[in-house]
Design a binder for these strands. Structure first.
Length: 427
RNA sequence: GGAGAGGUGGCAGAGCGGUUGAAUGCGCCUGACUUGAAAUCAGGUUUAGGGUCAAACCUAACGGGGGUUCGAAUCCCCCCCUCUCCGCCA
């Protein structure tokens, strides 16, 4: 959520930053208009309420002093009190309605792209920052797509999963399930070693939580909902883990708070019907290890770089070639101000595919979820900055392993760092 | 699912119609005492919005939403959540 005070005091800057996402898409003028109305009413209301309080206090004092409740003096005050109440009854609903409208409009506004975020219209204008692991790229000749090799090895079961659920689901069988577990454990162990505290959060979350991180209200159609309970299947552990601290005031000395979490993730993938219909790339249910940080605003840029490094460390340990993109203003997510994507090399397709997205949300989510911190000796509170990134998406990592580690004889070598988890060298 | 209890400041916990934004304790901050610290004493310490150069000041908030009243943390109604016991269950 953007700061209304910033919108009010610096409308041109805000509008210009929003235009960097998509020109003509966002207009803050209605907010400014409604805000002016609301403030005007609030002024009047405040005065009336002050008078009402005076009357109440005056009556209280006189009664305590033994005044007759039927005396003219008291009756006159009560009459005025009733008049004030009438006027307030007229003003209050107006102001309430205006506030609700403003809130709804602000909740629909995305974060401002950071000044360092490259300007661009769409994903074609993302900027490649660096590449890693070219030396591990093998000759792709004869390499089967991961879904083919997976079915051949009997470790990925698509058609039966479709019977059980629907399309875009998979069952992992035998060594496939074991590999998934190995990846989860390896990633968690690595991130715990790097200083993250593991958490296993609920994967059903309420609407307030989804609003806190920015999935609601705009992206309701992207999540599975249990309508009777106001609960949704979490689309990413970002939601439950960030909301762990919703409506809290944290001690500055406890920052940064860093969590890693393994959870299944659920996405409806509405509107992507033709895309990635085969394999593990785009499923309604997938596993992910997520990294989430709550940091002091002064350190969020440095913490962001560190977090990207933590995600990269997984790919490096797995010796999977990847590149780092900095997303441009037209492609960063709704809540993010700055975002790096990690893309892993998929030899069968001859392309890099997103495997992690690491974002700095600045105070955008913290403001929505009211996550603040207090510094000793300083008055008041400030919003923390929240960061998160995949570390990593398990299914896509599995796809990358099945392809990058595929042998000419149709087996798949187990990456060295996973062998102690798998207790075997080949699939 | 049945029965009961309860949701108050950073925490614990009073208040149950009138100058109560809220006793008390803990925590925290400032000062005194001390070589320093502890202990002790005095004072201070909620958040949000408005206002101001900065203050003063004004308004709101005692789970959420309505209602009664000149006036509600306190009374009434609805909803949510938590806890205890019973039942069921991984």
């Amino acid at each position: 959520m953007l700061d209304l005070k910033l919108i009010r005091s610096n409308p041109d800057l805000v509008q210009e930053r929003l235009n960097a996402r998509k020109a003509g898409e966002y207009d803050i003028q209605p907010i400014l208009d409604l805000d002016a109305q609301q403030r005007s009413i609030e002024g009047d209301r405040g005065q009336l309420q002050a008078r009402s309080n005076e009357i109440g206090k005056a009556i209280g004092q006189k009664m305590k002093g033994g005044a007759n409740p039927q005396s003219e003096e008291i009756i006159a005050l009560k009459t005025e009190g009733n008049e004030v109440k009438q006027k307030l009854a007229d003003l209050e609903p107006q102001e309430k309605e205006l506030k609700a409208q403003i809130k709804a409009l602000i909740l629909a506004l995305p974060n401002l792209p950071d000044a360092t975020t490259p300007i661009g219209a769409n994903e074609t204008e993302n900027v490649e920052i660096r590449r890693w692991g070219d030396e591990y790229k093998k000759d792709a000749t004869g390499i089967l797509p991961h879904w083919d090799i997976g079915e051949k090895l009997g470790i990925l079961e698509f058609s039966r999963a479709v019977k059980v659920a629907q399309s875009r689901f998979v069952s992992l069988m035998g060594a496939g399930a074991a590999l998934e577990r190995a990846l989860i454990n390896f990633m968690l162990d690595t991130q715990i070693e790097a200083g993250y505290t593991e958490v296993m959060p609920p994967v059903l979350v309420n609407s307030e939580s989804l609003t806190g991180t920015g999935q609601l209200p705009k992206f309701a159609e992207e999540s599975f909902r249990c309508a009777e309970d106001d609960l949704w299947l979490t689309p990413t552990a970002e939601v439950p883990v960030t909301n762990l601290y919703r409506d809290e005031v944290l001690d500055a000395e406890n920052l940064p708070i860093a969590h890693c979490a393994y959870t299944p993730c659920f996405r409806r993938e509405a509107g992507s019907y033709g895309k990635d219909t085969r394999g593990l790339i785009r499923l309604h249910q997938f596993n992910k290890v997520e990294l989430v940080k709550f940091v002091h605003p002064d350190h969020s840029a440095a913490e962001h770089e560190k977090l990207v490094g933590n995600a990269e460390a997984i790919l490096q340990a797995l010796k999977l070639p990847y590149r780092v993109l900095e997303l441009c203003s037209g492609d960063i997510g709704f809540s993010a101000g700055k975002c790096y994507d990690l893309e892993v090399w998929l030899p069968s397709a001859g392309t890099y595919r997103e495997i992690s997205s690491c974002s700095n949300f600045y105070d955008f989510q913290a403001r929505r979820a009211s996550i603040r911190f207090k510094e000793p000796k300083q008055k008041g509170t400030r919003f923390v900055h929240t960061l998160n990134g995949s570390g990593l998406a398990i299914g896509r990592t599995m796809a990358a392993v099945l392809e990058n580690y595929q042998q000419p004889n149709g087996t798949v070598e187990v990456p060295e760092v996973l062998r102690s988890y798998m207790r075997k060298d080949f699939l």
